[in-house]
Design a protein around this nucleic acid. Structure first.
Lengths: 226, 226
DNA sequence: CCTATTTTCAACTTCTCTGTTGAATAGTTG
DNA sequence: CAACTATTCAACAGAGAAGTTGAAAATAGG
């Protein structure tokens, strides 16, 4: 026998712990969250996560060692992407657990959201109905590149940074639903606030594309801007 | 505004990382795995995980701080249990990812299993059919207390340690299917080997009760021994 | 071939985690 | 109430991780 029971168990739990360690750092979790939105270069990830490129590279390398991400060279850039849908599932499982168990998360979220506006998130089924009936318009306020990777079916791309330029093209008579990366992302909150200041009726959708996809709802890969 | 975007994000990812850290240690993962089988006392967990009681207590305390487990006093013992079904889901998500991504896990498992016998695990649907038709008999070879907490519907309790005493009661003409805690638990492997040595036709079921339950298949809470 | 750019590596400091040991705490039971 | 026992706490040494800095490797394009 090459391994005793105990040695075997230790080896297995060590392997599982490799995955645990990989998601034991806030920085790496943020990277995984960003990568759930689509592939990215090291530099882009570093910028968005507010970390040095060197540190981002190191953390990505760690995620790679745990087989959570894969790399591909594109010209002078290296593009990282999730190793599979299941990695996103892991992130969502963690998030769900956090929401259920860690009242602190809820408190932080509430603190933050209350400090802005009270923006009731919209209901999914209701949203689909309204869009179908032409009562509502869905805006994807993430950066254009993320929209191009994937977006909720029927949504228009209106990056938060360029939202002001889109205002004149938006219908005044429809409700506008803004979404971004997910419940902890604040871009849609800012977008809704801006839209309301401009007189639009706007609400926030808490889901991001990964949530949407995980529920089996329609997602488009790359859509034309009308 | 009480928090900036960045502070808010940091706080959220910190909370998620708390969960990640909790499952970043092999020892704690083993504890979670054991607790997936049912509530346990500190001493019992320490014995099974091969750790000192003090260290086990400390790690359980850590899991408790991450809201993954709950405690209850029973007589002079403290009983720990998972804080919810979702914790088990997290463990299973990790395990699934490990199986998919970490070829090392597969290699270790194969090494180990080959070093024993080649025990082809049985197919779930096929198993249900055979049990229903009376062609097969399902044995739960985990310790009696785990069986009493929950077991696969229709299974008999035959703890590995007492399996020898049960041999005379087992039918020679039926196939015997043994299961234990899950794919990484080796009790069912030992059981199958023993049964085969004694002339029974025995196979191993890879699933444990948590997997079985998670698939929505029937689980009984406490069953009488025939 | 050489340069500019992106990414990775290596060394280092600071901080945190792990498991052990021995003592303290908190309940239960006689 | 006192003795007993399971559990937890506190302090410690060793190991390992996080992020910084500066330099090296790899690639595209002139």
């Amino acid at each position: 026998m090459t391994l005793s029971n105990r040695q075997y168990k230790d080896a297995i739990y060590d392997q599982l712990a490799r995955l645990g360690k990989a998601v034991a750092s806030p920085t790496r979790l943020e990277l995984v969250d960003l990568l759930c939105q689509g592939p990215r270069t090291v530099e882009s990830l570093a910028r968005q996560a507010g970390q040095s490129v060197a540190n981002t590279s190191k953390n990505l390398r760690l995620l790679h060692a745990a087989r959570l991400v894969e790399t591909a060279r594109q010209g002078t850039y290296v593009t990282y992407r999730l190793a599979g849908e299941e990695v996103c599932d892991l992130f969502r499982t963690l998030r769900k657990l956090a929401e259920l168990r860690l009242t602190e998360v809820e408190a932080i979220t509430r603190d933050f959201l209350e400090s802005r506006d009270t923006l009731e998130p919209v209901d999914r089924e209701e949203l689909i109905r309204r869009v179908h009936d032409g009562e509502a318009l869905v805006l994807d306020v993430r950066p254009r590149e993320e929209y191009e990777t994937a977006h909720i079916a029927g949504a228009l791309s209106a990056p938060l940074s360029e939202l002001k330029d889109f205002l004149s093209e938006l219908p005044q008579d429809k409700q506008i639903v803004a979404y971004c990366r997910g419940p902890y992302c604040v871009m849609s909150i800012d977008a809704v606030r801006l839209l309301r200041e401009e007189g639009f009726e706007a609400v926030r959708l808490e889901d991001g594309v990964p949530d949407w996809r995980a529920r089996g709802l329609a997602v488009e890969a790359a859509g034309a801007q009308p």
